[in-house]
Design a protein around this nucleic acid. Structure first.
Lengths: 199, 199
DNA sequence: ACAATTTAATAGGGATCACTATTTTAATGG
DNA sequence: CCATTAAAATAGTGATCCCTATTAAATTGT
């Protein structure tokens, strides 16, 4: 009898490294040490297994990152720690590079459009989490009321996706954190109209 | 007899939309209106065709973008126009979403590691182009001499990759340009140390 | 017009794809 | 100890993967 969570952990790691289209059911059954019928009786199909592996992995990361973001820290510091934590996740030793979700199933065969919608929705949700934290910052006077929090969230979402891509290409942790430091200078509180640009 | 450039144009579009692993040789031959042996006699293999399609597409975009970046415009304006042009490329009507290179072959089966190295090298090269423009800006007094141009180039590279990912997920042109506008506030010339932060 | 050469089309090879029907093994119950 | 249920393994489904050997058609040279 296969332990569900153990199987999901193994599947998540394979999908993380090779992507949905790059991982075969033979890869999965071999890595789990099970036979094909067990995979299908336990998880339904390759596509359902992928969704479950995504949920499983996200649930593990989410508690810590959500705690960072929704803590009582000032929003700027919370955002900084949140991004640093993602940079750490992108460059863990003995783990696949990058993020399992951020850069998953972007280009895909038509037959996998449904899976692509799933990962796109997860990315959208994570940006909405950022936006809601920024909205809270407005109510708490940490951000100007007129701040475009939606675009600001998508900006940091783009940084997160770019970090994942560069981690896949081999970027080290220190580089990603330097990227973050530059991205944080775009924070509304950190920005000031340059002198002599008042027209 | 198949026109090489016509075939590469069709192949590039398919690879752009579906990715390397999501595009089959049957897709390619059908779209080109040729038989399999013609594909192999003309392009060698699926992998070689992909490389040629990448080169073909990049050559088309490169002249315009390179002209923008290496013009006599101030570096900040050149960078702005460069990024806007990429945002336009990410959201062309009747074309696949995102960039063919920026978010290609990030997760992949082991057997496609060689193709992944190719796209990674193309991404690295495009960031080096940015860096060299920033280095020129230092010599021309547009940037402080101590500017970390490598990280700055990778920061805007991350923005480019993030825009491609979000375009794949359906982001519109206007959103991408708002992202760019935020990213441009991270430009060294646009940043100032906030008052009361001098420790 | 006919032979030589090139180009295109068919057909298929060996491997792998996601997935299952069937059989074998193991565990359980009385 | 045997019948019943549950678990695991085998074996194989049709489809599709990338690629090619072989055949058919078209083109060329003389």
């Amino acid at each position: 009898m296969l332990d569900r969570d153990v199987g999901l952990d193994i599947a998540a790691r394979l999908f993380w490294e090779r992507g949905y289209e790059g991982t075969s059911t033979a890869d999965l059954t071999k890595a789990m040490g099970i036979n094909p019928p067990t995979l299908y009786s336990t998880f339904g199909s390759k596509e359902e297994l992928y969704r479950q592996a995504l949920d499983f992995s996200i649930a593990r990361e989410n508690s810590r990152r959500s705690e960072i973001l929704h803590s009582n820290l000032p929003v700027y510091e919370a955002l900084s720690l949140y991004l640093y934590d993602i940079a750490d996740g992108d460059t863990q030793p003995d783990k696949p590079r990058g993020c399992m979700v951020s850069t998953a199933v972007l280009q895909h065969a038509e037959e996998n459009a449904s899976v692509a919608r799933t990962t796109a929705a997860l990315r959208e949700a994570s940006m909405q989490v950022l936006k809601s934290r920024f909205d809270r910052a407005i109510t708490e006077g940490e951000l100007p009321a007129e701040t475009d929090t939606d675009t600001l969230a998508r900006f940091y979402g783009a940084i997160i996706q770019g970090m994942s891509a560069q981690a896949c290409d081999g970027a080290c942790n220190a580089l990603l954190k330097r990227l973050i430091d530059i991205a944080l200078t775009a924070w509304p509180g950190m920005r000031q109209t340059p002198a002599g640009n008042s027209d």
